[in-house]
């Protein structure tokens, strides 16, 4: 089926209604992730949640841990993990010095709302900044999934992981939102936006998102269409043409590439280390994805560049 690309005539999606979630682990490792998360959220003018997922104590000793934490409260020692969220808020303020509303928001570890294993920091001064700070405990993918389902996030932004294979499978299979994985992301590097175009439905949204990012960040755009055979069918060719037409209609210059070969290997080789990849999520059924993987899963496993998978 040939995808229909949205043009200026149609009503574009409303970025202001979008909700993005950035997962942070520590001040030491999550600075680039948070920086990119804040940047992307500002590009889309989306509300921005920051979640820290800490380790959950074995249920066997759960009451001992809870007792200790209650006692730590008596000593004014904050819940472990809240310091990461405190750092995150500080960092967000540093990243947006012009945002006066954000500057007014104060972090108070006593102002937290605890419910069902989730701790939400209450930000009483948040007037229009649309910031959420949340602490969860447990397995990363499970907790991110719960948070995304609870708050209806559209995009989850996470850093790269050592355990890449397992992470790629889990996040792409189970997180019910678009996913942005910041592998080896260098905030100082000049990236080119590489949009992987085929005839799938998910390509439409990825083009819209890509266009917005390119427009706001001024990054050069390339589209790549890969066919397994030397012949490019009407679907692939049509999708690439419509993608170009969409970028042209928004005044964004785009370079088109058509290559043949194994799609994943071609994506990976082409992406090198200086592209920021955007691709649509797989539409394969979940069991097939679990057993055999999918193009996004394999691409995420094999590339070392930031990759945004749009669902």
């Amino acid at each position: 089926m040939v995808a229909t690309i949205m043009t200026k005539k149609k009503v574009p999606f409303d970025p202001k209604s979008l909700k993005f979630l950035t997962a942070v682990s520590s001040a030491e490792y999550s600075k680039p992730t948070l920086k990119m998360g804040a940047l992307i959220a500002s590009v889309f003018d989306a509300s921005h949640g920051v979640v820290y997922v800490g380790e959950r104590a074995s249920e066997f000793h759960g009451s001992s841990v809870n007792l200790t934490r209650q006692n730590l409260d008596n000593w004014n020692i904050i819940h472990p993990g809240l310091e990461v969220l405190e750092w995150a808020l500080k960092e967000l303020k540093t990243l947006s010095p012009e945002n006066e509303e954000l500057a007014k928001i104060q972090f108070n570890p006593d102002h937290v709302y605890e419910e069902d294993g989730r701790v939400r920091v209450i930000l009483p001064d948040d007037k229009g900044c649309r910031i959420e700070l949340v602490l969860r405990e447990g397995e990363l993918v499970d907790q991110l999934r719960k948070e995304i389902q609870l708050e209806g996030y559209d995009l989850a932004i996470i850093g790269g992981s050592q355990n890449k294979r397992h992470l790629a499978h889990s996040i792409l299979q189970y997180l019910p939102s678009s996913i942005f994985v910041l592998q080896k992301f260098n905030p100082r590097k000049k990236y080119k936006l590489l949009l992987l175009v085929d005839d799938s439905m998910a390509t439409i949204k990825s083009i819209e998102w890509g266009a917005l990012i390119a427009e706001k960040l001024g990054w050069p755009v390339r589209t790549l269409t890969v066919s397994k055979t030397k012949r490019f069918g009407a679907g692939y060719q049509g999708a690439a043409d419509k993608a170009k037409a969409y970028f042209d209609s928004r005044g964004i210059e785009v370079e088109q590439f058509f290559l043949t070969g194994d799609p994943v290997r071609t994506f990976v080789e082409f992406a090198g280390d200086n592209h920021f990849v955007i691709m649509g999520a797989s539409t394969l059924n979940p069991v097939k994805q679990f057993l055999f993987g999918s193009k996004p899963i394999k691409t995420l496993e094999q590339t070392d560049v930031p990759i945004l998978i749009v669902r």
Partner: peptide, 16 residues
Amino acid sequence: TAVAAPACTIIYSSGL
């Protein structure tokens, strides 16, 4: 491991 004894689990849960 952090799971064997309650004392070990508690210090582990401090995140430090």
